[in-house]
C-alpha cells in the first residue's frame, strides 16, 4: 500500500521546537512511517502578513525532491496583490494547491475574502486545504489565537463557491460537523484527513456517537476521507494506525491513502 500525505509541513513553529522540518529530514521521517510522498507548505507563512517570500523559499527548498514533496502555496487574501501571489505560485512555481489560514490571517472562512480566493482557486482547479487547528488550543502560547477553524463557515463557503474543492485537516468531530450534517453538501467536493480523528471508539456518553470515522464510513462518508498526518507537528504513524483499522474495502483504502490526493492535486503519479 502506498501512502500520500496531504497534510505535511516544512519550517518553523514559533512556540515549540519541531523535529524533522527540513525537506530531507521530513522525507526520511515520513518514509520511516511508510509514507512515500507528501504535500507541504511553509509553516511560518501562516503567521506572515506577506506570505510570498515563504512561498518562494518553499519552492526552492523542495525542488531537489520534486517527485516526493509537492509544494502548496499559502495565500493571505487580506494582503494586497494576493492574486499575483496565487498566479505566480501556480503558473511559475508549479504549486499544486493552496493552504488558507482564516484564524491566523484574520478573515472569516465564509467572508468575502475567503470567497474570492477560493473562487480563484476553483477557476484554476486548485485544491484548498484549511487546517482545523495547527496546535491543540489547550497548550497555546499567549501570542497564538489558539482558535479552531469554524466548520459552519467552511460549510457556508462550500455552498457559496461553485466548483470548489476543500480539505479540512487535523480535525475531530467530523460526524457532528456542518459539512456532514448539512445533507445538501454531501455530494460536494470536501474532505477530511485522518490525522486526528479516531476510528472505532471515542469517549462519549451517547452510545450512538462513540464511533467516529467508523460511523462516518457506515453512513457513506468514505468518499470524503483522505490520508494526512500533520507531520512534523504530530507523529506520522498515528495516521498509519488509523488507516490500518479503517473499516473499508481494500480498493477504497487505496483511494483514501494514495489515489484521492493524487487526483485532487492532479499529480499523475502511478498507482
Amino acid at each position: 500500500m502506498n501512502f500520500f500525505d496531504l497534510n505535511a509541513w516544512l519550517g518553523v513553529w514559533p512556540f515549540r521546537s519541531l523535529r524533522d522540518n527540513t525537506p530531507q529530514t521530513l522525507l526520511a521521517r515520513l518514509q520511516r512511517a511508510g509514507i512515500k510522498a507528501a504535500a507541504v507548505s511553509q509553516i511560518e507563512a501562516a503567521l506572515h502578513r506577506n506570505v510570498q517570500p515563504a512561498n518562494e523559499k518553499l519552492a526552492e527548498a523542495v525542488e531537489p525532491f520534486k517527485k516526493q514533496l509537492f509544494p502548496m502555496a499559502t495565500i493571505n487574501p487580506r494582503f494586497p496583490g494576493w492574486e499575483e501571489h496565487l498566479r505566480r505560485c501556480h503558473e511559475v512555481l508549479g504549486m499544486k494547491g493552496v493552504r488558507l489560514f482564516p484564524v491566523y490571517h484574520d478573515f472569516a472562512a465564509d467572508g468575502i475574502e475567503a470567497r474570492r480566493v477560493v473562487g480563484a482557486c476553483a477557476e484554476r482547479g486548485l485544491i484548498v486545504v484549511m487546517p482545523h487547528r495547527l496546535e491543540d488550543a489547550r497548550q497555546r502560547h499567549w501570542m497564538d489565537p489558539g482558535q479552531t477553524l469554524d466548520l459552519n463557515q467552511v460549510a457556508n463557503l462550500i455552498e457559496a463557491v461553485p466548483g470548489v474543492t476543500i480539505a479540512v485537516t487535523n480535525a475531530r468531530g467530523i460526524m457532528g460537523s456542518a459539512l456532514w450534517q448539512r445533507q445538501e453538501l454531501r455530494k460536494k467536493n470536501w474532505f477530511f484527513d485522518l490525522s486526528l480523528a479516531e476510528v472505532h471508539y471515542v469517549l462519549h456518553k451517547d452510545v450512538n456517537r462513540m464511533r467516529e470515522l467508523a460511523d462516518f464510513i457506515d453512513e457513506g462518508g468514505a468518499d470524503h476521507l483522505v490520508f494526512g498526518t500533520h507531520t512534523p507537528f504530530s507523529y506520522p504513524s498515528a495516521a498509519r494506525v488509523k488507516a490500518a483499522v479503517l473499516p473499508v474495502e481494500p480498493e477504497t483504502l487505496k483511494k483514501i491513502c494514495w489515489g484521492r490526493a493524487n487526483q485532487l492535486m492532479r499529480l499523475g503519479m502511478p498507482e
Binding site: L196, E198, H200, Y201, V202, L203, F233, S234, Y235, K242
Partner: peptide
Amino acid sequence: NLDDGQVEWAVAEMGAESVLFGTDGTMTG
C-alpha cells in the same frame, strides 16, 4: 494531543520505567 516528541520527552525527563501507555479514549492516536 498527538504532538511529535511527546513520548520521547517523557522518557528523557522521567525515564522509560516511569512512562505508561494509556489512551483515555484516543486509541489509535
